[in-house]
Structures are given as structure tokens and as C-alpha cells.
Amino acid sequence: MIRINPWLNSIRKLIPACVLILSHPLHAAPKIDKEDLKQLRNQIESLQQALAGTEESKSEAANALRESERAVNDATRKLAALTNAQREANDKLNQLQSQSRQIKNHVEAQQLQLSKLLYRQYINGSGQKEYLSLLLNQQDPNQIARNLHYHGYLSQAHSDNINTLRINLEQLDALTRESREKSSEIATIQMKQAEQKKHLEQEKAEQTKLLARISMQADQQRREIDKLKRDEERLARLVEKIAKQLASKNRAKSLSNSRLPDASTDGNPFSALKGRLSLPVRGELANRFGSPRADGGIIWKGLFIRSVSGEEVKAIAGGRVVFADWLRGFGNLMIVDHGSSYMSLYGNNETNHKQAGDAVRGGDTIATVGNSGGNPESGLYFELRHQGKPFDPLNWVRIK
């Protein structure tokens, strides 16, 4: 994360310095270097790039968290399936155990029956002796035959019971062994799945913490960017204000007019008078054509010449007055038409000495200086226009 506290400290130190500049007389103010403002903007841009990287890391962390959650979900689903399988295996084992008890009871009954049979044969002698007893007994031959036949059935049944007993015992052992192996296998898989889920849960928790940490970092960077932008705006306004005041002071020092118009230019077309005209009043120039006004947003379309109230305002060249009246923002305003779509404008006058329709010659007094129209200081507002569009008077006059 980019450390920007030093930047904020440098900005906070810079703003009071600019305030100190404003608090001193303008002639003592040094040249304002905009390098600090440029550096601040570069720092904001760098922080914005870092924020973009943080947002990208946040997106990557969110993707990783999503994958972790998916993995946890899969593991949980597998564990649920294994739990069901374990439950089924347990049910099967219970069935086998129940079946085993039934077989065991049946085996015990067969064993009891077999033991009784063997005991009877032991008491009566061998099976061959019983067979001879049946044969030599003085009975009906048919009855003897039937008894011998039954005896064969019984012997076969005894033999079948013994075989069935053996098969049941083997089957019981096999089923019990299979059930235990299956149960053990499921328990092993379930344990591994539980370990994997635990690991995934830990990974998910770490991803969640990482995402929260990155989000907090991004929020902090946004707040720091907002602070820097506000500092930048304050500094930019301050630098602009200082620059305007310095420029205004420098212009007032460097441009001061003491030359007045005369009638030497009369008779010539106005378009031929470029560089031969004089400003209409003595005084100091407070601004330049095209420079921004102090109230901001609007540029100067003419010149404001600071002068003493009551000073005479002269016509810069011959022409005819086409407007002499009060106009909002310009106070007592006079407009002189010089022909060929050239006009000169004289505003903020204390008094207009000519009326619309009056012809004037270069150097004639047409008004006196004032501050009409709500102007805060005494002086003359002067414009030159061609075809209704203003142009820079300083390109047409000689200043002395």
C-alpha cells in the first residue's frame, strides 16, 4: 500500500505558506511556481493507480473466496453423501447382524439336533447296527421296506443339515467380514473428507480476512485520494488567486498611460490608424485584453484604466456618437462609431458630455472619469470593436 501521509503533511505545510504570501504586500510576493501543484496531481494519479491495483487484488481475492466456498460446498456435499453411505452401511451391518443371529440360532438348533442324533447312534451302536435291527426284526416285510426307506431319508437329511450348517457358517463369516471392511472403508474416507473440509474452511476464513483487509485498504486509499483532491483544489484556487493578483500588480506597474488623443488622425480611415492611436484617459492599466476577471469565469474584452474621478475622457478618433446612456454593468456608457464597422466604447463615466448623434473629433472631451455602474474603483472601461467583435486595443495604441 502506498504511504501518502508525507504527501498530506507537505500539502498542509504548503497551504499556510501560500496564505502568508497573500498576507504580505504583492510587490514583495515571489513568483508562484506551479511545480508543487503538478507534483500533488502526480501523487494523486499514482495513488489512483495504486487504488486500481488494490481493486484488482480485491477482485482476485473475491474470486479465490468464491472458489474456496465452492470447494467447501463440494466437500460438504461429499461428506453428506458419505454420511448417507455410512448410514446405509450401518443399516446393512445391522441387517447382517440380525441375519447372523438368526443363522446362529438355526446353527445352534442344528448342532443340538445333530448332537442328539450322534448320541442316539452312540447309545444304540453304529448306524449299521440299527439298519440290521430293522432288517432282522420279525415284522411285516412291507413295513420293513418302508422303515428302511425312511431311514435313508433321515440319513440324507442329516447329511444335508450338516452341509447347510457349513454353508451358513461360511456365508455368515463372509458377510460379517465384508460389512466390517465396507464400514471401515467409509469411515476412512469420511475422516479424510472431514480433514479436507476443515482445511477448506480454514482457507475460506483466510480468504475472507484477506478480502476484508483489501476492502479496508481500498476504502482508506479512496479517503486519502479525496483528501488530496480537496487539498489540490484549495491549493489551485490559492495559486490562481495569487497569480491573478501578481499579474494585476505587474500590469499596473508596467503599463501606465500619459498620452492623450488629438485631431491629427482625423480624415484617415480608422483601419489605417493601427499603432497611431492613444488611450482616451491618463492612468494605470489594471488588466489586459483576454485575461480572466477577478470574479472568475469571464475574461476581459477591453481595458480598465484606473484614473482620478473627474479626469477628462477623450475621443480616440473622429466619429459620431451612437449611444450615450446608462447601461447595467457599464454605468454611464458612450459608444462612438468611427465608420467601416469600427466602434469605441467608454464605460463607468461620471458624466457623458455628448449625446447620441453628436459628431466628435479626435481629442474631444466626451465624458469625465467616474465609477458609475457599481464599479468599486474610479476609472474608465474602454473597448474597441470591429463588426461587433472586441479586439485588443493595445495593438492599436501608443502608450507613453
Rank of each mutant, 00 (worst) to 15 (best):
G370T: 06
P141H: 14
K129C: 00
I299T: 01
R361Q: 12
L37Q: 13
E181F: 13
L200A: 03
Y381E: 02
L384I: 11
G374H: 07
S10F: 03
Q196E: 11
V19P: 00
H106D: 15
K92E: 15
M191H: 10
L175S: 12
K249H: 07
K227G: 00
N90V: 12
K197R: 13
G370K: 02
N105V: 07
T164Y: 02
L117H: 08
K249S: 13
K58T: 15
R180T: 11
L112A: 10
R77T: 12
P280N: 12
E60W: 09
Q110W: 03
L47M: 14
F270M: 12
L93V: 07
V360C: 01
S344Y: 00
N257P: 07
K192N: 11
H24M: 14
F323H: 13
L273S: 02
L345Y: 13
A294G: 01
I242S: 00
E312W: 00
P292C: 01
I2R: 14
K38T: 14
M1R: 05
V360L: 08
N124T: 07
G370A: 07
H24F: 07
L345W: 03
L169R: 13
T188Y: 08
G297D: 09
A71R: 07
W326F: 13
K204W: 05
S264F: 06
G302P: 03
I162A: 09
R177Y: 09
K116W: 03
L165R: 14
G318C: 05
A212C: 04
L135D: 05
D266H: 05
G53S: 14
E203M: 09
R70V: 02
L246W: 02
I2Y: 08
H338R: 02
R320L: 01
Q86C: 04
K38A: 15
Q95M: 09
M1V: 05
S126W: 06
A263T: 07
W326S: 10
S341L: 05
I242Y: 06
A272R: 13
L345Q: 05
P261K: 04
